[in-house]
């Protein structure tokens, strides 16, 4: 079975929000000119993801999913409100961002000074809603898993934006062709970084590792654990994360 740690590590590296899914690219490109602002926005994204995903998880499991209303009234077991999920998730994200902004402003002015200007930006950051939608799609079995996923995704996003900001700070001293300066070169660098991150996902060498990792394919008693899991393979392939493949 997929462990919580597994989900966490996967969310940082192989399923990195920026490099694997391109979520939150707009603010990633706009706010990565200096490392300082990048750290601020990155921290704000981690924070908001960790708060919103568990809330949306509860919402999904106790309100929206088919059968989710059973705890209120057994007769409502057939109600399926999942068509409302987009709108609910968005409302939750936007209102939590607003709420957090107010609370931080009131109780931690210093933190507000550092994060404040980024919070409104975050409401429209696709990675936040993306986090909620992935959570829904992957059906995490506990709220702990969902939180681990959100923390991992946030950290992955943080790493990505800080890395590009550091590169952009340095590239100022390089002789980049004029038309490519700024946005153009940032795109290309992000592409190259994306390729580097792809090596985490074991694109081509999944084949050999699968044999090791998935010996139990034909065992009917363990049906539940044999989902094909690209992340798992990758970790086996990279070979530096033995913790993750406990079961083999």
């Amino acid at each position: 079975m997929e462990t919580t740690l597994d989900i966490f590590i996967k969310a940082i590296f192989s399923e990195n929000m920026i490099f694997a899914y391109f979520l939150g690219m707009c603010s990633y490109l706009a706010v990565s000119k200096t490392v300082k602002t990048a750290v601020g926005l990155g921290a704000a994204v981690i924070f908001v993801l960790v708060v919103t995903v568990p809330v949306n998880y509860l919402l999904e499991n106790y309100l929206l999913k088919e059968g989710a209303l059973e705890w209120l009234n057994p007769a409502w077991v057939d109600i399926d409100l999942s068509f409302l999920s987009f709108i609910m998730f968005i409302a939750v994200v936007a209102s939590i961002v607003q709420l957090v902004e107010m609370l931080v402003e009131k109780f931690a002015p210093a933190l507000y000074g550092a994060l404040g200007i980024f919070l409104p930006l975050i409401a429209v950051n696709c990675s936040i809603l993306g986090g909620a939608l992935f959570m829904q799609d992957r059906q995490y079995s506990t709220i702990g898993d969902a939180t681990a996923f959100s923390l991992g995704s946030g950290i992955g996003w943080f790493i990505a934006i800080v890395a590009i900001a550091a590169i952009r700070e340095k590239i100022r001293y390089s002789n980049v062709p004029a038309p490519l300066r700024g946005l153009g070169i940032t795109f290309i660098i992000t592409g190259l970084m994306g390729m580097a991150f792809m090596s985490f996902s074991g694109i081509k060498y999944a084949d050999d590792t699968k044999k090791k990792a998935k010996v139990n394919v034909a065992d009917p008693n363990t049906n539940s654990s044999i989902t094909v899991d690209p992340g798992n393979t990758l970790n086996a392939a990279v070979g530096n994360t033995n913790i993750i493949n406990k079961e083999d």
């Binding site: 694109i203 999944a206 084949d207 998935k214 034909a218 044999i226 094909v228």
Partner: peptide, 16 residues
């Protein structure tokens, strides 16, 4: 590859 492997796993698990 990963999708192909997914098909393989799916077929073997269900067909059995």
């Amino acid at each position: 590859t990963i999708t192909s492997k997914g098909v393989e796993e799916m077929a073997n698990r269900c067909l059995e």
